[in-house]
């Protein structure tokens, strides 16, 4: 109909998109999502310092409101360790040491899970509840949401790991049946060139996000336990 497009053009004529596009999308997406998450936690940071400075009725932090430093430190350490290990895993993947990456990836999952479990242990053993003043409020809200984010990260790491496992016997560059990735049986051409082509970029993206989240973990630990 016009120079640029026509309704009658067959879907198959549209060239399949090169995987670099998705790779770049994932990278920028991870950065943007990290900045949004930063603002999310910034609100809690703001609340912390605001209420601490205000301390209007001198109940900011009664004596018994004292979460266990050991458990908190362990939780933070496991998050940081997971992020560091993931970096090494990415390096392994770059160097084509796929078994090494999968092994490290599994440990990362375990570490993240451990962090969440430690946090839950902490909540169930601590000597205060949500009604014990502003510090307790900030503490519970913040750690709770951070744990949710860690669970999300866990999921994300798991998906790349699972893809890598599922295709562990597939040759690099092997052709994929049409519509394989999206499960769209009507597709006449592959909707993804190679199921493995995106693992690296996704891994880089998730590793960036993990590093970011471990940064949040350190801030959390410092603000809630040390300050």
């Amino acid at each position: 109909m016009t120079e640029l497009a026509d309704h009658s053009t067959d879907y198959g004529v549209v060239a399949a998109e090169p995987p670099e596009v998705m790779a770049r999308n994932l990278r920028i997406g991870a950065h943007l999502w990290a900045s949004a998450s930063a603002f999310f936690f910034a609100a809690f940071l703001f609340a912390y310092f605001y209420l601490r400075a205000l301390d209007s009725t001198a109940v900011w932090r009664p004596k018994h409101v004292d979460p266990s430093l050991t458990l908190g430190t362990l939780a933070a350490v496991s998050l940081v360790a997971a992020a560091v290990l993931l970096r090494f895993a990415v390096a392994d993947h770059r160097a084509d040491r796929l078994n090494a990456w999968r092994f490290k990836g599994a440990i990362v999952l375990a570490l993240l899970l451990a962090g969440v479990v430690l946090q839950i242990v902490e909540w169930s053993t601590q000597s205060f509840g949500p009604t014990d003043g502003p510090y307790a409020s900030v503490y519970l809200g913040w750690t709770g949401l951070l744990s949710l984010f860690v669970v999300g990260l866990l999921y994300w790491v798991e998906t790349t790991l699972a893809t890598s496992f599922r295709y562990r016997n597939t040759r690099r560059g092997a052709p994929v049946p049409a519509g394989h990735a999206s499960g769209d049986g009507d597709r006449s051409d592959p909707d993804i060139e190679n199921p493995l082509s995106l693992i690296r970029s996704e891994l880089e993206a998730v590793s960036f996000y993990a590093t970011f989240l471990s940064g949040i973990g350190i801030v959390t630990w410092f603000v809630l336990y040390v300050l």
Partner: peptide, 18 residues
């Protein structure tokens, strides 16, 4: 729900739905 579950099971990321 189907895409996240497929990803959980190790299906590769895809461009879009049908």
């Amino acid at each position: 729900a189907s895409y996240p579950i497929q990803r959980l099971l190790g299906k590769p990321p895809s461009l879009r739905e049908k």
